[in-house]
């Protein structure tokens, strides 16, 4: 059979229309099945079976609620990610820490506390300087260290303005009580908070946020900034949630209320 130009265009048009309709249909069936699949709505719902730019994970932390001396988030993080404890504070590995600060230039300002971790910047300077592309930003905005690639050069530690990164400066033996779902570490790599990426991928919120709600004061909220109906989006829209040092231009995805 020989196609003339008119037939060819007609068939092409029909195929294009069919494809478009098909994808619309599957989009509808996707949202439908997404809702009936689970009885309890998972805390974190990612789109599809892979990291996708349809999500943009981030956090809002209300410092007014963050309790003095409470370290539920820090403990939960250490437990979840098998973060070891070194006695020398210069060598200690921290994924999340409580920092104490005092407003500058405000007479009579009192000391306050807040948790700080990797802020998963929109424009991460750490990823920019990494010579082996070990640090990278995943499609859903999480900044990760691929420990398989890291050569331990520590450029990223210098580049990060928020001091979020630690270097594994000595050998660490896996312990019996470790969380076996999370691999441990090796001397000579750099590591940092990864928003508990293994938990996000299985529909759970980060360990610090969960323990802050359960054991702490519920100061931390995690969610999807691309979803306008999510709690974090609403908080950023309606309150005075702010980034730390916005002038640096890294655009952190962790916002603070009450500073």
């Amino acid at each position: 059979m020989a196609l003339d130009r008119r037939d060819f265009l007609t068939i092409g048009g029909l195929i294009a229309a069919g494809t478009a309709l098909g994808s619309v249909g599957s989009a509808f069936s996707h949202t439908a099945s997404g809702h009936e699949g689970h009885e309890a709505e998972p805390a974190v719902k990612r789109t599809g079976d892979r990291a996708s730019s349809k999500n943009k994970w981030g956090m809002v932390i209300d410092i007014e609620k963050c309790g003095e001396g409470c370290d539920a988030c820090v403990r939960a993080c250490r437990k979840e990610n098998n973060v070891p404890h070194f006695d020398d504070p210069k060598l200690d590995i921290h994924w999340i820490r409580k920092i104490t600060f005092k407003q500058k230039g405000v007479p009579g300002a009192e000391e306050r506390q807040m948790p700080a971790m990797c802020f998963h910047c929109e424009h991460p300077p750490c990823a920019h300087v990494c010579p082996v592309a070990a640090t990278f930003k995943r499609a859903d905005g999480i900044v990760l260290v691929d420990k398989h690639r890291c050569i331990g050069c520590r450029y990223c530690m210098i580049a990060c303005p928020y001091k979020a990164r630690s270097f594994v400066s000595m050998h660490v033996e896996p312990k019996p009580g470790d969380n076996r779902d999370v691999p441990v570490r090796m001397h000579g790599v750099v590591e940092k908070c990864n928003f508990c990426v293994h938990r996000i991928d299985s529909g759970e919120e980060p360990a610090c946020v969960e323990s802050c709600r359960k054991e702490g004061n519920g100061a931390m909220v995690f969610g999807d900034f691309n979803d306008r109906a999510s709690k974090v989006s609403e908080m950023v829209r309606t309150s005075r949630a702010r980034r730390i040092r916005p002038d640096l231009g890294c655009d952190p995805q962790v916002f603070y209320m009450g500073i």
Partner: peptide, 11 residues
């Protein structure tokens, strides 16, 4: 499998 899991989140 590891490149897929770590870089693309396909577990």
């Amino acid at each position: 499998v590891r490149e897929k899991a770590v870089r693309e989140g396909v577990r």
